[in-house]
């Protein structure tokens, strides 16, 4: 257990000092601060534009971190042979893999928190979307973000770590470049699959007291879409930016269900990665 913890800390340090992580983080921070200027181009609902824009930036950069660092965190370690000294210590390969993955998870949490903090300060300065809380009478007011925005941040973390698990798995069976491409594909399909699934559903109408199918897509196509929808992860459930923009409260049940979905899928992917990794020749 201790070894996993040290491994996690070391991997986190390694990622934190890497150029790719830095550049993504800095880029996102520039965009978030820039969202202020973007919102100024509009006269109405400036706050909503800011939220949309910033949430998009935070999501996309964390997804990038998940994809690119996820596909290189073990792959590069093998390629550069720096893995040789760590897994020839008395550690199990799974322990090493968990350490690497948790290190990346920590990095994603770290970057999301920093981005959210900057976002919070921008909102605070603009006095938009922040909710004043008065904990005790006479005390200075504390401003909080609305609940859907906080949930959105949590979902971004889950989604990015999830994507990282996909990238890690791919990077163990193909090259780094292919792993990134496949992960991007899975991410893309995972975002549109639920919409596609709705599109190919038969359109039914009640005509004269009977249910009649007025339109039915090609059966083969329908089945393929259904299978893709069922098997590939559904990432669209982690995108609640419109709820966030309209400050719609997210129920605890929804949050719980989506987190459990993300975590269990991730654990499954990780177990497969671990099985592949323990059987792999590292040379």
């Amino acid at each position: 257990m201790k070894k996993i913890l040290y491994s996690t800390m070391y991997s986190f340090k390694e990622i934190k000092n890497s150029k790719i992580f830095y550049s993504f983080l800095i880029f996102a921070l520039i965009l978030i601060s820039g969202s202020y200027f973007v919102s100024q181009t509009s006269f109405i609902s400036q706050g909503r534009i800011m939220v949309d824009f910033s949430i998009f930036a935070i999501t996309i950069f964390n997804i990038f971190i998940g994809i690119f660092i996820g596909s290189s965190i073990v792959y590069d370690d093998i390629e550069k042979k720096s893995i040789f000294l760590s897994i020839t210590r008395p550690v199990k390969r799974t322990e090493y893999l968990i350490g690497r993955f948790l290190g990346l998870t920590a990095a994603i949490i770290f970057s999301t928190v920093i981005m959210m903090l900057i976002f919070y300060f921008v909102l605070l300065i603009m006095h938009k979307y922040v909710i004043p809380l008065k904990p005790f009478a006479g005390q200075p007011t504390i401003y909080s973000l609305p609940q859907p925005l906080i949930i959105q941040a949590l979902f971004i973390i889950i989604e990015s770590v999830f994507i990282a698990a996909v990238a890690l798995l791919f990077s163990l069976i193909t090259s780094k470049a292919l792993a990134s491409i496949f992960t991007i594909l899975v991410f893309f399909i995972g975002n549109v699959s639920s919409k596609m699934n709705d599109l190919v559903r038969p359109v039914k109408k009640i005509i004269g007291g009977k249910i009649v199918i007025v339109h039915q897509a090609n059966h083969a196509l329908t089945n393929i879409v259904h299978i893709i929808y069922a098997i590939l992860p559904n990432f669209s459930i982690f995108n609640i930016s419109s709820e966030a923009a309209y400050k719609i409260f997210i129920s605890a049940g929804t949050v719980f269900y989506r987190i459990v979905y993300g975590l269990s899928y991730m654990v499954l992917l990780f177990i497969i990665s671990s099985l592949i990794f323990t059987r792999k020749d590292i040379s």
């Binding site: 890497s18 550069k80 042979k81 720096s82 040789f84 000294l85």
Partner: peptide
Amino acid sequence: YLPENPSFPRG
């Protein structure tokens, strides 16, 4: 174990 051509992560 001392590997041939050892290397370490950056940074």
